[in-house]
Design a protein around this nucleic acid. Structure first.
Lengths: 340, 340
DNA sequence: CGGCGGATCGGGAGCGCTCCCAATACATCG
DNA sequence: CGATGTATTGGGAGCGCTCCCGATCCGCCG
């Protein structure tokens, strides 16, 4: 059925050409010690002359490893795809992987067929570990990976998740400190635009919001909550709805910078000044937060650290074979700019 | 150095367990004909009982194929990442691949190191073919892939590209027909918001715009061109700038729906009515085009067909070993809605 | 000058699968 | 009942690499 690669020189041919043994060539291409410099150069020249490229399937078979990890996005995250959050994470993971020699492979799992296919791919040994974007609570993939004993790290835990490694930002604390900041400024009529509430991260941010209000003795007030799907457009809609229902709002916590940007638009359209009439806080602190008008006060997620932590956990699991679960919660930080 | 997979039953063990030969088990897992039904069932049961999963490295080595293709995004396309265009393409490619049994792997190439690493990955035989997102003119990757004789299909050709297979939409024709539509409506003072002009697709759309004006005898007029980077925000800025410089504009062609959405905002802010004062046409016809106010007249790109065509070309090249270059230009279509 | 120990090297033994041909089983026909 | 043909099956021969152990080489000491 075709699909075959054209012939390529093998390690053995390189060895013959350089008049050395197979082992020596292997040592050279793997940068192993114990090869005389002159020999090494001779082998490198032979490699050059023959245009040799190692066959990774053979290496993988003999070495029992793939030198690659997968980053999986499942369907419910699909909407995140167009979000800066996603590209930021990918960038950060890419950076964290640069000197490990591992290839990062993104895969999309949108249906049962694709889930099954990916599972075969991973269990078949084409990747050494799996990173999962924040997963829908009902998604069976994490458990399937765990059962296959594949090293796996989740980005953003699911509710009550324990038996899987994950890295998450302190969403509750972040939201809480944002609301405290608003209260300290003298704002009294709070509202929040949440993310999609089937996402645990969105639930946490809402919880932080509620907790801060409760701590301030404002628990009895109406909830003033509107849900968005993290897009600017939905943020605009949610904000418009909130102003309509509660015209005296003076402080808003949005579930992401993008959502906050939409909220700013809606406030402008409604003739509210920011921050004079209404203070707005975003979440994430991606570059967008500095390009809004006014620039956004926001809860910073440590994206670089998240990426690095995920890779670190994954490497540890790969090293010792998924015998323990590790959890890392990273501190968030309020960045105060002009919108409050 | 760790990274080894736990032991897993092998084909041979399944064979022993089912009391058949290695070949028979191979036939069963590959769904090959010529196995008695009773035997097939026995083997399947053995597979089930042992929890057997084929080792893909071994299969790949013996079969000389990877059963996977890569979709590569290089750095200049990074800005497209957050664009609907990108997720639409990925979706469409995913659909087109579902019944081929091939895994789709997304990879990002952001630096020379990553380019090199990906090249080793691909030349090492971990994928059977490569799909490239529209590539920057100076990117050496396509040539490197061609030299390695890896089946490769480009999405969106580069300027004057011939010696590589590609699939592209008829951007020139699309832009031309959009402008003609505006002219037919009696609009006379045209302007365009282009995409980033180092992208060939953006150049083509601009060229179509200019050609249509020239054909209408309006070639002598000032150019009235502003560049965007395909984002809504840059579209808004570009539109604001255009109104400022040419207050009597009555027809605008934007380089994408997103850009057009930004332009609509700017026009609204400037007090222009759409379509009464100014007609606006977008490009792409993604779902956004139907959610703007007013809904957007736009040039439809046949995303599904693009994905199918890319996969078809890639499969053909994989079959016969990259001996010919195929080019497919897909017709675009003007979808008239409320903004004109 | 023989002997010793560490630095280099060579190549056998797999890794787990596909391919393919020879061997066997079973069915049909004269 | 034997011959002939076809449906199944078994398993040898790799695929190209890593691992690892035993062999070789070389500088240096006594």
């Amino acid at each position: 059925m075709g699909r075959r690669r054209p012939d390529t020189p093998t390690l053995e041919e390189v060895a013959a050409h350089a008049r050395v043994g197979r082992g020596t060539v292997s040592r050279v291409i793997n940068n192993a010690a114990g090869v005389k410099d002159s020999t090494r150069r001779a082998v490198q020249q032979a490699i050059e002359e023959l245009g040799y490229v190692p066959n990774l399937a053979a290496r993988s078979l003999a070495g029992r490893r793939a030198d690659a990890v997968a980053l999986v996005m499942t369907e419910p995250d699909w909407r995140l795809f167009a979000e800066p959050f996603f590209s930021e994470i990918v960038r950060s993971l890419g950076d964290a992987l640069t000197d490990t020699g591992l290839q990062l492979l993104l895969t999309l799992v949108r249906s049962d067929t694709e889930r099954q296919r990916f599972l075969e791919y991973a269990r078949g040994g084409r990747v050494d570990g799996v990173l999962l974007m924040s997963v829908h609570a009902g998604d069976p993939l994490p458990d399937m990976l765990a059962e296959a004993r594949l090293p796996t790290v989740l980005l953003g835990r699911r509710s009550g998740e324990e038996y899987i490694s994950y890295v998450d930002a302190d969403n509750i604390g972040g939201a809480r400190s944002a609301v405290s900041h608003l209260l300290r400024q003298g704002r009294r009529v709070m509202a929040t635009i949440t993310g999609p509430l089937d996402l645990y991260a969105a639930q946490c941010r809402l919880r932080g919001y509620e907790e801060a209000l409760a701590m301030a003795g404002l628990a009895g007030e109406p909830a003033r909550v509107a849900e968005s799907d993290f897009t600017a457009e939905s943020g605009r809609r949610a904000m418009a709805e909130l102003i309509e229902r509660y015209p005296d709002i003076d402080g808003v916590l949005a579930a992401s910078d993008t959502t906050a940007a939409g909220a700013l638009d809606a406030l402008r359209a409604a003739g509210r000044r920011v921050p004079e009439d209404v203070a707005v806080i975003g979440f994430d602190d991606f570059s967008l937060a500095q390009r809004t008008e006014p620039r956004l006060t926001t809860v910073r997620q440590p994206i670089e650290e998240i990426g690095r932590a995920m890779i670190r956990l994954l490497l540890e699991e790969m090293e010792e074979g998924a015998v323990a679960w590790r959890h890392v919660i990273l501190r968030t930080e309020l960045v105060v700019r002009e919108s409050t």
